[in-house]
Design a protein around this nucleic acid. Structure first.
Lengths: 109, 109
DNA sequence: GCAATCGTCAACCATTCGGTTGAATATGCT
DNA sequence: AGCATATTCAACCGAATGGTTGACGATTGC
């Protein structure tokens, strides 16, 4: 459990991996397509995807010869909840609160 | 900005540092007192505190010969906001929502 | 003044990390 | 069958990480 937080936060600590997650926010992608906008090698991207997978932040499903990468946002929940534990010391953040609420209402209807 | 996320997430990726943050949630502490429950050396703790400071997660103020460590939860906000961007894909999390709301009400009165 | 306490610095060590390159393994196309 | 495409594996490299120990600079109290 604490170990999960280790791997999740470590995975998030790299800008390339965060960029990959943002890309996957749009849509599921094949490994080669994930790699396309980056300057680094495909093998490096493959490693990053392995780290994201081990952290539970994405899942990879091989269909034919292409492996599809899918965002798995549930894994962020534990980390998010952990961070919220510190929120009580923040001045009340109405902006964040209202955005949160708006999203909930929008998604719920 | 993306660089900030790097250092914040990297700082959170270590269980010792997360434990330190949790301790500081209770109260401000001197470096020696922070180190007390851990088995590792004082120098190692000093390094961890340096990393947390550089990430902006704590501040350290030297008063006399003792250096006080204080939680700085604002630094978590950017990281938290970044993570919330993925929240819209989560199923509605009413538990978290209600806890959030309860804290806001409690802190606000 | 002097000894004890608080904390950091410097050098070192083993391990991990992010990257490369080249070979290997599937799978698909014709 | 044979070639191209998709992805990973393996070995390697330099830099960063988390830890240690011992010396050092401040500060406090007797």
């Amino acid at each position: 459990m604490s170990d999960d937080l280790d791997t999740v936060f470590a995975a998030l600590a790299d800008p390339t991996r965060r960029a990959i997650l943002s890309m996957l926010l749009e849509d599921d992608m094949a490994v080669t397509d994930v790699a396309e906008p980056f300057k680094i090698s495909l093998a490096a991207i493959s490693k990053h995807l392995g780290i994201l997978t081990r952290a539970g932040l994405i899942t990879q499903e091989k269909r034919g010869r292409v492996k599809w990468c899918k965002l798995e946002p549930d894994a962020l929940r534990d980390a998010s909840v952990w961070m919220q534990g510190f929120g009580q010391f923040e001045p009340i953040n109405l902006d964040a609160f209202e955005r949160f609420l708006a999203r909930e209402l929008d998604a719920g209807s």
